[in-house]
Design a protein around this nucleic acid. Structure first.
Length: 500
DNA sequence: GTAGGGTTAG
């Protein structure tokens, strides 16, 4: 390639293009060259060490191998070791488990070197100690940072705190660290509180997280929306929290000026619906609207599912209408909830109409839609229709899942259509889908009642081979029907009484 | 810069 001398990429360090003459004395270039060479030697030495897998015993001037190599290689090029070189050394040492070198390196950095040690070197080591469960070492190093002519910032504080927060046993060290960090003149930031809140939420101590948030406000820090969101989302994952308690926290946050976003509302709504508080969920949705934020289809869908759960179909219809008025487009989840509502009202015909109209609107029903319909049809006893729908599913290119089969199988068994049930059972077996054990029991009972003991025995053997355990009623039926000609194979018993 | 979060089931 011919370099164009006028191009901007021309090397300014070539004599031809140089802007300024080099000083005849030591130049940056020389310095950089020396540094590069020294680094090269250091890297080679570490590479050799790690490839031979030997623990070098060389101790020069009481310094262990890698540190000596660093000092010597820089000395050879008449330059001082750089922070970058130390950083490299520290990384190498942790990666090759030469941990005994760390104290030597730190001593050297503290007492021999004169430069202001960059904070990131300590952060690296603090993280290393923390992840290696050497928390006390991490804490000690943090407090030692000023002795390296380095002013620690909130960055290393946050790091240390996040490491301490990984385990409950270290949490008790946090207050002391916070206190001492004030003496070190580290300015706490919202980010620090975020670290604490995040950690507390992770270990499910949302109560403490809320306390931290309150302390923050009392100390004059501004309310951080991210912290509130974090608390809300963790709060909503709590198992033992009542909806009243959750609403109190929510209300207090709003009083403090928290502006919930769509996601916060979704979390809250999901929680309330799970607790059977559809009306409170709706209240949250309405608050969102009052705040001038348009709830999305997901919010509406969850609230709607709450009303289906509570059989409040008036509210369900109102919400469905509201969605359309707001110009939101219902998706398959929304339709599924609505269809489930209709099915629960025993209005399967209307549900089927909805399916047709959603298809027309370009929203493809999915396996959940069909499972809902099948379940309703079977429940109603309309097995003929259920069979039609069942066939239709495959034709529409929707894949049947375990539930589809279980619903259909239970429908057939419920109507005593055992022959067809057995055919379906075979089909399921091919796909490695298995019915609930109670369905197996029903099938065997039906077979026995019909006097088809042979078929019952064959099925029984198959079931046992799959480590299902037939219920007591099945045994009874089999024994009553078999008389003296009990024909279980030995494996039946072996399989039954010795769990694999 | 965006997505995330949501549906059935005995």
């Amino acid at each position: 390639m011919v370099r164009n001398p006028l191009s901007k990429t021309a090397n300014k360090y070539l004599r031809k293009f140089r802007k300024w003459p080099h000083s005849p004395y030591k130049t940056t270039w020389h310095h950089t060259f020396g540094e590069q060479q020294a680094m090269h030697i250091l890297k080679q030495a570490t590479f050799q060490m790690s490839s031979t897998q030997q623990q070098p015993q060389t101790q020069i001037n009481n310094n262990p191998f890698l540190l000596s190599t660093l000092i010597d290689s820089f000395k050879a090029y008449n330059t001082d070791p750089t922070p970058k070189a130390y950083y490299f050394l520290v990384k190498t040492i942790t990666n090759t488990s030469q941990l005994h070198e760390i104290p030597h390196i730190l001593n050297h950095l503290e007492h021999i070197e004169k430069f202001e040690t960059p904070e990131f070197i300590f952060c690296y080591l603090i993280r290393f100690y923390g992840l290696a469960d050497r928390v006390q070492d991490a804490v000690d190093l943090f407090f030692r940072i000023p002795r390296f002519r380095c002013t620690p910032t909130v960055y290393s504080l946050n790091l240390l705190l996040s490491l301490l927060c990984r385990k409950r046993e270290f949490l008790k060290m946090v207050p002391n660290i916070l206190l001492k960090s004030q003496h070190m003149k580290i300015r706490l930031e919202e980010s620090t509180f975020r670290v604490l809140v995040k950690a507390l939420c992770r270990i499910k101590r949302v109560d403490y997280a809320i306390k931290i948030m309150n302390c923050m406000i009392e100390d004059g820090y501004s309310l951080d929306d991210k912290i509130c969101s974090l608390i809300i989302s963790s709060l909503c994952e709590q198992e033992d929290l009542t909806s009243v308690e959750a609403l109190v926290v929510w209300g207090n946050m709003r009083k403090l000026g928290f502006c919930p976003g769509v996601m916060d509302c979704t979390n809250m709504i999901r929680f309330l619906v799970k607790e059977g508080k559809g009306k409170d969920a709706l209240e949250i949705l309405n608050q969102l609207k009052e705040d001038g934020i348009k709830p999305d289809i997901v919010c509406y869908t969850i609230v709607m599912s709450g009303f289906v759960k509570e059989d409040d179909y008036v509210k369900l219809d109102e919400l469905f209408d509201e969605i359309l008025v707001l110009g939101l487009v219902p998706d398959v989840y929304t339709y599924n909830v609505y269809i489930n509502g209709l099915c629960k009202q025993n209005n399967v015909d209307e549900a089927l109409k909805i399916v047709v109209s959603m298809e027309k609107l370009g929203c493809k029903p999915n396996v959940v839609t069909y499972n809902t319909l099948l379940g309703a049809l079977c429940m109603k006893g309309d097995l003929g229709k259920a069979k039609t729908v069942f066939k239709e599913i495959g034709l529409k290119g929707v894949e049947l899942n375990l539930h589809t089969y279980r619903i259909m199988l239970d429908g057939l068994v419920g109507k005593g259509e055992i022959g067809e049930a057995c055919v379906l059972l075979e089909e399921m077996s091919d796909k490695c889908f298995y019915p609930r054990s109670s369905t197996f029991d029903s099938i065997i009972l039906h077979l026995c009642q019909k006097g088809l003991i042979g078929d019952a025995t064959v099925l029984m053997n198959k079931i046992v081979a799959k480590s299902f355990v037939p219920g007591a009623k099945v045994w009874e039926a089999m024994l009553l029907n078999s008389g003296s000609e009990l024909t279980y194979s030995e494996t039946t018993f072996v399989g039954l009484f010795s769990p694999q």
